[in-house]
Simulated assay, not measured.
Amino acid sequence: MIKFKHLIYIAIVGTLLYACGSDSNPRVDNFDHEAQAVIDNDSLVVFFKNNYYDEALDSVKPITNGQTSLFDDDKLVTKEVTENDINYKLYYYVNNVGNPNEDKGFPTVMDSVYAKYRGQKIVRRDSLSPDFDKNTTWFSLNGVIRGWTHSLIHFKGGNNVTDNGPINFEDGGKGILFIPSGLAYAKRGTATIAPNSILMFYIELWDFVKDTDDDQDGVPSINEDLDGDGNPRNDDTDENGTPNYIDTDDDGDGILTKEEDRNGDGNPANDFNDPNKPNVPDYLNRDIRVKS
């Protein structure tokens, strides 16, 4: 089942990378993303002060009778996030962190997750749009808007309680994400979301694939973050334009990474056979070509 999920995910990643490929005629971006981040945060603060979480309805509602605002609610968490040198404030509301019996911990920014969600746009300080999207599906935290990536890692999965019926989970992570436009679709927008829209998502995290390995090379994608900046997407050992986490031959020596596992334990990252580079694993060392 896990391998099947990975195959689906690899196909999705390939499509996303093709769709988001570089522009052969790049234009100068004169949009002030930093100023927009400030505008979005001001709008979110106003929204929080005028709305509250209605537990009975499991919904965010305008304050009508002295309810505790989201702004003053201890369950609302603020997170500082930097993307493309712009500082953002991301917010998420924690109904339940999640507590599976077999505790896999929290997913990483590169893991594949199984979640239920529905999204709305924050229109005014006391107004939300109808749902623009809702689904229950597998997806990669590396392949979605960055607000999702940086939020879902703070929730855990749940327990599979399926009994000869539809797949179902209980006690999973549950919350609400409040995402500034710069961590969503920014000035681009989509067919259904206007540029610079602030988004809100109700989410339930049901499960995830611990140590997701996107290219199936034996090295978890999160561990292909060689420079240690928390972002494996910018690590490309052989400088071929394909980051290591989706490169089946990380050092470009003609031998697949998964085959540079001389000790045969399924982990190429602990094979060191070059005395001149004792701290460089074989799969990242072009000077040594050792197959398992």
Rank of each mutant, 00 (worst) to 15 (best):
I2A: 07
I2N: 10
I2P: 01
I2W: 00
I12H: 14
V13C: 13
V13L: 14
L17W: 13
Y18N: 13
A19H: 10
C20D: 15
G21P: 01
G21V: 12
G21Q: 14
S22R: 12
S22M: 13
N25F: 15
R27F: 12
D29F: 06
N30V: 11
A37S: 14
I39D: 09
D40N: 11
S43W: 04
V46S: 15
N51Q: 09
Y52F: 13
Y53F: 15
L57E: 13
D58N: 11
I63S: 03
I63Q: 01
T64D: 13
T68F: 02
L70W: 01
D73H: 05
V77W: 06
E80D: 13
D85F: 10
N87H: 13
Y91E: 00
N96R: 08
E102N: 11
F106M: 06
P107D: 01
P107M: 00
T108G: 10
T108R: 05
T108A: 07
V109N: 05
M110P: 06
S112T: 12
A115W: 05
I122S: 04
I122R: 05
D126R: 12
P130W: 01
D131W: 12
W138Q: 05
L141P: 01
G143P: 00
T149F: 03
H150C: 08
I153M: 00
I153G: 00
F155A: 03
F155W: 05
K156H: 00
G158C: 03
T162A: 09
N164M: 12
G165F: 06
P166F: 10
P166V: 10
N168Y: 06
G182T: 08
L183V: 06
A184N: 03
T192D: 15
P195D: 02
S197W: 05
L199K: 03
F201A: 04
Y202N: 02
E204M: 05
E204V: 05
V209T: 08
D214L: 12
D215M: 08
D217F: 02
D217Y: 04
V219K: 10
S221G: 06
E224D: 09
D225Y: 02
L226Y: 10
R233C: 12
D238R: 03
E239V: 11
N240C: 08
N240Y: 04
G241M: 08
N244C: 08
Y245R: 10
T248G: 11
D251M: 01
D251R: 00
D253N: 15
E260R: 02
D261Q: 07
N263W: 09
G264V: 09
D265P: 07
N276V: 07
P278M: 07
V280P: 00
V280W: 04
P281G: 04
D282N: 13
D287N: 13
R289F: 05
R289C: 10
R289E: 14
R289A: 15
V290R: 14
